[in-house]
C-alpha cells in the first residue's frame, strides 16, 4: 500500500481566547491517499477549517495542537519553522475562499502567483516564471494575459480560479479546498467545481474538500466525513453517507440541502433546531443530544459514543448504530 498523503492521528486543537481554552478539534483521525478525495462537512464552528489551518501550521501562536499530522509521512508538528515554510505550498496548498479578501488588493494576480513559485524555487528566471503563471491561469480556464490584472478587476468566479491556479503553483501533492464555492452564485459554483474536479483527476492530486454544503461533496468526493463539535461523527463513501446517513446529524445536514435534479427533496427540508454547541461548554455525553431528534433519554446525555462500524467501509458515532439498531 502506498503512503498516505495526509494522515491525522488523534488531532486535538485548542484555541486560547481571553484566557479560556476553546477546544476546536477533539480527536480526529483522517487518512487521504494519493489521488484520493475526501469531503469534510459540518456547520460553521465545528472545527473543519481549523483542520486546514493546522495542516500548514497557520493557526495563531497561542493555539495548542496535539496528536500527529503526517504530510507524506513526516509530522509537520515536529518540523522546525524553516522546514514548515518549505512544506507549505509544495506538499500541501490551500484553495482559499474567493471573496475579495483572499488576494492582496494592490498586487497584480500574476505577481501573487509568481511570488509562490519564486519563494520555493529561487533559481527560476523571471521569464520562465511568467510563462508558468500564464500556463497555470490557462489551466483554470483564464487567458494568460489576465495575470496583469488586479483582484478587483476580476469577477468572483475568476478570482476563485486565480486562487486555484495559485494553489497549483508549486505542484503540491495535496490540495485543501476551504469553502471554495461559498461566496459564489450557483452557476459559477458549478463551473468552479468542474475546474477543481478536472484538475484533481488530470494532475493526480489528493483533495481535501471542506464545506458546509453536503450536496457539493457528493459528486466531487469519493469519501465523506461529517464533523460535529470538533469530532467526526460519520465517515464513509460519499454516495452512501449522503443517501443513507446513519448519524442523525448527518441526516439533518443531508436533508438541509435539496438534491439537484430531485424536486421532491425541496419539499422536505428538515432544518435542525437549536444552535451549534458552545465549544467551551459542550453538553455531557453525546454533544449532539440536546438537538437530536432520536435522542435516547437515559443513554445519550451520559454516554459519549465514539465512531463505530456502520456498514461496509463506514463508521458513525451514535448509539443507534451497530448492534440491534443497525439495519
Amino acid at each position: 500500500m502506498t503512503e498516505a498523503v495526509l494522515e491525522l492521528r488523534d488531532l486535538h486543537v485548542t484555541y486560547r481566547a481571553a484566557g479560556v481554552d476553546v477546544p476546536a478539534v477533539r480527536g480526529v483521525d483522517l487518512t487521504i491517499g494519493p489521488r484520493d478525495t475526501l469531503g469534510l462537512a459540518g456547520e460553521s464552528g465545528c472545527g473543519k477549517s481549523t483542520i486546514a489551518g493546522a495542516v500548514l501550521r497557520l493557526l495563531p501562536r497561542a493555539t495548542r495542537v496535539e496528536g500527529e499530522i503526517l504530510l507524506e509521512g513526516q509530522d509537520v508538528l515536529k518540523l522546525r519553522p524553516g522546514k514548515v515554510r518549505a512544506v507549505r505550498w509544495t506538499t500541501a496548498a490551500i484553495v482559499f475562499q474567493g471573496a475579495l479578501h483572499s488576494l492582496n488588493p494592490v498586487q497584480r494576480v500574476g505577481d501573487q502567483i509568481a511570488e509562490a513559485i519564486e519563494t520555493h524555487a529561487r533559481t527560476r528566471s523571471r521569464r520562465t516564471t511568467t510563462a508558468r503563471v500564464g500556463e497555470l491561469l490557462e489551466r483554470v480556464g483564464l487567458p494568460a494575459r489576465r495575470r496583469r490584472e488586479y483582484p478587483h478587476q476580476l469577477s468572483g468566479g475568476q478570482r476563485q480560479r486565480v486562487l486555484i491556479a495559485l494553489a497549483l503553483a508549486c505542484e503540491p501533492a495535496l490540495l485543501i479546498a476551504d469553502e471554495p464555492t461559498t461566496a459564489l452564485d450557483v452557476m459559477v459554483q458549478a463551473q468552479v467545481l468542474s475546474v477543481l474536479e478536472d484538475l484533481q483527476r488530470d494532475a493526480g492530486l489528493a483533495l481535501l474538500f471542506i464545506t458546509h454544503d453536503l450536496s457539493v461533496l457528493r459528486s466531487s468526493c469519493r469519501r465523506l466525513a461529517v464533523m460535529y463539535a470538533g469530532r467526526i461523527v460519520e465517515e464513509g463513501p460519499s454516495g452512501a453517507v449522503f443517501d443513507e446517513p446513519r448519524h442523525p446529524y448527518a441526516r439533518a445536514l443531508a436533508s438541509a440541502f435539496p438534491t439537484i435534479g430531485d424536486p421532491a427533496s425541496r419539499y422536505r427540508p428538515s432544518g435542525l433546531a437549536g444552535d451549534p454547541p458552545d465549544p467551551t461548554a459542550l453538553p455531557t455525553g453525546c454533544p449532539f443530544h440536546p438537538r437530536c431528534p432520536v435522542v435516547v433519554d437515559d443513554v445519550c446525555p451520559s454516554l459519549d459514543v465514539r465512531l463505530r462500524p456502520a456498514g461496509p467501509a463506514r463508521e458513525a458515532a451514535c448509539v443507534h448504530v451497530g448492534g440491534d439498531d443497525d439495519g
Binding site: 515554510r85 518549505a86 483572499s102 511570488e115
Partner: peptide, 22 residues
C-alpha cells in the same frame, strides 16, 4: 486580520516577507 496575509503565510513566505510585501 486580512485573509491575504494568511494566504501569503500559507505560500511559505517568511514572517518578515509577509509584513514587508503584503
Amino acid at each position: 486580520s486580512e485573509d491575504y496575509l494568511q494566504l501569503a503565510r500559507a505560500k511559505g513566505l517568511r514572517d518578515t516577507e509577509v509584513r514587508r510585501r503584503h
